[in-house]
Design a protein around this nucleic acid. Structure first.
Length: 271
DNA sequence: CAATCAACCTGGGTGC
DNA sequence: TGCACCCAGGTTGATT
């Protein structure tokens, strides 16, 4: 599922592949995924050139020369693919944006949770982005991180994944970061001591940087903009490893539910 | 206000 | 083999 490293990888791919192209057409057979509506989006973007791509949290932004922005969220199973015009239809292809240079930008999305949204100007974009907490690899320092954890008695894993508090961390990287920091994911966030907070801070950065280095985790659905898999799944520490051996102590990785989500951890190592 | 939980969807897996 | 059922999880929005 696309989290910070996956979306960052796509952002970098798109920056190389489609900046400078002009939008020629947008079509969809899943109109609910285009907001506010296909016709409004069509009127606003056709004819406009793409000038840059940005990422904030798990949200991609395609900036257009006319001052408008296309914001794209991939949610659980979204893929953003750059294909040659006329290339075979992709699995679960939902939205196609035709570009100059005989290219197409396609949103493919099994579960149809992802969306493409027209943002009218920078002001509206600022409002949209203001909901997100700091970026863990950018403007989240240890002091801020400490304050965020201290502000909630909820399980630390839930706080890590709360986009209003911290941007970009989803289920995969939250599990692995907590393993590296040797912290039980159910611990109340405000009950960690200073040393644990520091270890978790470093662990979050470490797993996200590893995720980017390996171009994301292709556990089930994730592919980069050219349809290639990432390889972070070959380096999972806990995620999806229920019943397998802990890399540290050799004990069994267990699975529990926290906040309704699958959570993997080593009961021996994580206290 | 914070916490909880269903809803949004589809397809893969499971158990009978 | 067929079929009902459950489950996956990012985010929103309703409810407690």
């Amino acid at each position: 599922m696309p989290e910070l490293p996956e979306v960052e990888t796509i952002k970098r791919d798109l920056s190389a592949l489609i900046v400078g192209k002009k939008i020629l057409e947008i079509t969809t057979d899943s109109p609910k995924q285009v907001k506010p509506s296909l016709s409004v989006v069509e009127k606003s973007i056709v004819g406009a050139a793409i000038i840059k791509i940005e990422r904030r949290a798990k949200l991609l932004q395609i900036f257009l020369a006319n001052g408008q922005i296309l914001a794209i969220h991939l949610k659980l199973t979204g893929r953003l693919l750059v294909r040659k015009k006329g290339a075979p239809r992709d699995d679960w292809q939902r939205v196609v944006i035709s570009l100059s240079g005989n290219k197409e930008l396609r949103l493919a999305d099994l579960r149809k949770f992802g969306w493409v949204r027209l943002v009218k100007d920078k002001k509206e974009l600022r409002k949209l982005l203001s909901e997100f907490g700091p970026e863990p690899l950018d403007d989240l320092d240890l002091k801020k991180f400490k304050a965020i954890l201290a502000s909630s008695g909820r399980p630390v894993k839930i706080v890590l994944m709360d986009q209003k508090k911290i941007s970009g961390v989803g289920n995969i990287y939250a599990n692995d970061a907590l393993f590296l920091a040797k912290i039980d994911p159910r611990r109340p966030a405000n009950k960690l001591d200073d040393e644990e907070v520091k270890a978790l801070y470093r662990a979050v950065q470490k797993v996200l940087q590893a995720g980017i280095k390996y171009r994301g985790a292709s556990d089930q659905y994730y592919l980069d903009a050219l349809g290639r898999k990432g390889s972070y799944q070959d380096h999972f520490l806990t995620y999806g490893r229920e019943g397998e051996k802990c890399f540290d102590c050799g004990g069994k990785i267990e699975r529990v539910k926290i906040g309704g989500r699958g959570t993997f951890y080593c009961p021996q190592c994580q206290k």
